[in-house]
Design a protein around this nucleic acid. Structure first.
Lengths: 192, 192
DNA sequence: TCAATTCATTGATTAAGATCAATAAATCTA
DNA sequence: TAGATTTATTGATCTTAATCAATGAATTGA
C-alpha cells in the first residue's frame, strides 16, 4: 500500500474516520525521485508537502557561491519548505534527494480544502505545525546558546544513523561551521 | 472592553460565531503585571498562553551565570514559552515584564477543550502555530547565515520602536553577541 | 535631588573558527 | 578496476567576536 505509512502516521496524531481518510487519500499522489534530483529549486514557491515513504533529502541554499545545508528530512515525516508553503513566498532553498525516494505529495489547494472540510485534518495540521515549531525552536536555541562542539554532540545523539549517510561538509554547514572546523572538532574528540 | 483587542485579533485570523466567542471568552482571565515581575520562572511548566493587551515582555535564561535574552513579546500578540506549553516540559526560561502589562490568560486545559469543541478555534490555533513557525524559522536562518552586523540591521528594520525601550545588553544577547560587540558594531555604523 | 547602581563604551588581549593552501583518502564512473 | 573527481584532513594565517578591565554616562529609587 502506497499510503500505509502515512495512514499510520496520521492515526498516531488524530482520530480519522474512514470517510475522512478516503477524502484525504483522493488528494494524494505518489512519486519516485532519483538520487540527486531536486524537488524544489531556489526561487520557486513550495506549493506542496510530501510524506517520505522511503529515502532521505536535504535542504540547502547557494547564495554567496558557497553551498549551505540547512536541513535534513527523513523517512516517515514530511519534506517541504514549510515557510514558503505557508507564506506563498519564493523559497530561498533547493531541496534535493540524497537517496532514491518515494514521496507522497499533497498540494496546498487540496490541503486548504481538506482543512476547511474536516476538523480532524485541521487539528492534524495544527499538531504538525506545533511539532515543527518545537523542533526549530530547539535548533534556534542551540545556535544561539551552544558552542559548535556542543551542537555537534547533540546532533550525533539525535541523528547518529543519519550521519553515516551524509558527507561531512553538509553536516558542517548544518551546524553553522566550515568542514575544516568540524574535522578539527572530531579529531579533538578522538584524542580526548 | 478587556477582550476587544483579542477579539479583533481572532477575527483577523478566522470567522468566529457569537456562540463560539462567548464560549472562548468564558475561559479568559485578565491580569495586570508589574514591571520586572516574572510570569514564568525557569523550571516551571508553562501551562498558558497570554494575549498582551498592553505592555512588553522578554524571555531570558540564566545558565552559566550570564543572563541571555532569547525573545521579546509585544502588544497585540501572545506571550508564552510555546515549547514548554506544547510539550509540557519544564521551561528553561524566565519571562519578565519590561513594562507594566495587561495580559489575557488562557490555560492549556481550557484551550484543549476549546480546540476539540470548535473547529474554528482549532483552525486559529493552527494559524498561530504556523505564524510562530515562520517567525522562528526566519530567526534560525538569520543566526545560521547572517553576520552579527546583518542581524543587528535586520532587527533595527523590524523592531525600530521597540529597540528604544530596551537596554542594549538584552538586544546583544538576543543577537547572540556580547554588549561590547554590539557597541562596536554601532559605533562602526555611525563612523561610516 | 543625589548617591548608588546599572549600563554603555573603549582598549588590550585571547580564543574560536574562517580562510587559504596542500595533500591524502574516498567515491564515482567509464 | 583505473583514472578522475569529490571529500576529508592538516597546517598556517587572518578575522571576528569573547573576555577582562577601566571609565564614563545614564537610571533609579530613597
Amino acid at each position: 500500500m502506497k499510503f500505509e505509512a502515512l495512514n499510520k502516521y496520521c492515526n498516531s496524531l488524530v482520530k480519522i474516520s474512514d470517510d475522512e481518510w478516503s477524502d484525504f487519500e483522493r488528494h494524494l499522489s505518489v512519486k519516485k525521485i532519483k538520487k540527486k534530483e531536486l524537488i524544489l529549486k531556489q526561487g520557486q514557491i513550495c506549493d506542496y508537502v510530501a510524506f517520505i515513504n522511503t529515502g532521505f533529502l536535504r535542504m540547502y541554499h547557494t547564495l554567496e557561491s558557497v553551498e549551505k545545508t540547512t536541513g535534513f528530512f527523513i523517512e516517515n515525516f514530511w519534506v517541504t519548505d514549510y515557510s514558503s508553503f505557508l507564506t506563498g513566498s519564493p523559497s530561498i532553498y533547493h531541496i534535493q534527494a540524497l537517496e532514491p525516494c518515494e514521496l507522497v505529495f499533497l498540494y496546498k489547494k487540496d490541503m486548504n480544502y481538506l482543512y476547511n472540510k474536516h476538523h480532524s485534518l485541521d487539528k492534524m495540521g495544527r499538531l504538525i505545525a506545533e511539532f515543527l515549531y518545537v523542533m526549530i525552536e530547539r535548533r534556534s536555541v542551540s545556535l544561539l546558546l551552544d558552542s559548535a562542539e556542543t551542537r555537534w554532540e547533540k546532533l550525533q545523539q539525535q541523528f547518529s544513523p543519519l550521519l553515516q549517510r551524509v558527507p561531512q561538509y553538509m553536516i558542517a554547514s548544518f551546524l553553522g561551521i566550515t568542514p575544516e572546523a568540524l574535522s578539527r572538532i572530531k579529531s579533538k574528540k578522538v584524542r580526548q
